[in-house]
Nucleic acid binder design. Structure first.
Lengths: 135, 135
DNA sequence: TAGATTCCCTACCAACTTGATAGACTTAAA
DNA sequence: TTTAAGTCTATCAAGTTGGTAGGGAATCTA
């Protein structure tokens, strides 16, 4: 399941997508409109900025805004960034791979199945972008 | 991600699938062969028994065994039982549904996307069984 | 029926994660 | 130089995860 943090992140990103190319948006405005706890949202937006998804301006007239075209930002990227692995097992994760202990991947039935699940999920998440969040 | 508990559960179930119709298997044997902490495994197996996946016999010659044909036990069932929701959001879960707060499902882009992901995962997990774990 | 064997049950625990808050600091505009 | 923003560090309560401890209850066998 996506954490609350991830859900907040997507709501905020959807809002910033609507406001794309309309100048910086205040954290406080996003917080109010999307009903996200202000200080928690601060952390999330900062993290997205450090990951080069968002950019910001300080001082009066400042705020947050998307660093690039929302149609270029994959949903999969955001999920990995804020929520972690998409795969159901570390041993089938592309970006967070870890070998399983006491389990030969070559003959583990679960392994193969979870690769299928991963690929099915990625087929969707890698082909949807922030612009698909707003319609 | 599947919890360690879930991974243990699948390993144990795979083992019991191999031994299907060969009489009760000791917790200690499963623990040793699959390298699962004994007492932790006890809890897991007991839970699976209460959920009618396994049955057991006490005393000498006792142990655990599958209650029904492994080809009849869906992987999706086990995941839901031991790990929880398969969906990425409560508001798109079939078995653990919860309405989202401050979010109209009818116009939430994330909602629709996560329904797609859920269905793609279920297409696999609902059509694989314990027998697919061993080959 | 005694004793061994095996699962059953309740309780507990440390470590980690999650969701959230507080407060001081920095940068930039007016 | 004041004010309006974002930035940073720290902290915290509650819940979850992974695991352990120890005795109780059922069953088999001698």
């Amino acid at each position: 399941m996506l954490s609350k943090k991830s859900q907040y992140a997507f709501k905020a990103l959807a809002y910033l997508t609507e406001k794309y190319k309309q100048g910086p948006v205040l954290i406080a405005e996003i917080s109010k409109k999307k009903k996200i706890p202000l200080k928690f949202l601060e952390n999330i937006l900062l993290e997205l900025k450090k990951a080069d998804i968002l950019d910001s301006k300080k001082g009066k007239g400042g705020g947050y805004f998307l660093k690039m075209d929302p149609a270029k930002v994959k949903v999969a990227t955001i999920v990995r960034l804020v929520n972690g692995p998409i795969a159901m097992l570390p041993c089938v994760s592309l970006y967070f791979y870890e070998r399983c202990k006491n389990c030969d991947e070559k003959q583990c039935g679960l392994h193969d199945m979870m690769i299928e699940v991963r690929d099915a999920s990625l087929a969707i998440l890698e082909n949807r972008t922030l612009s698909d969040l707003v319609h």
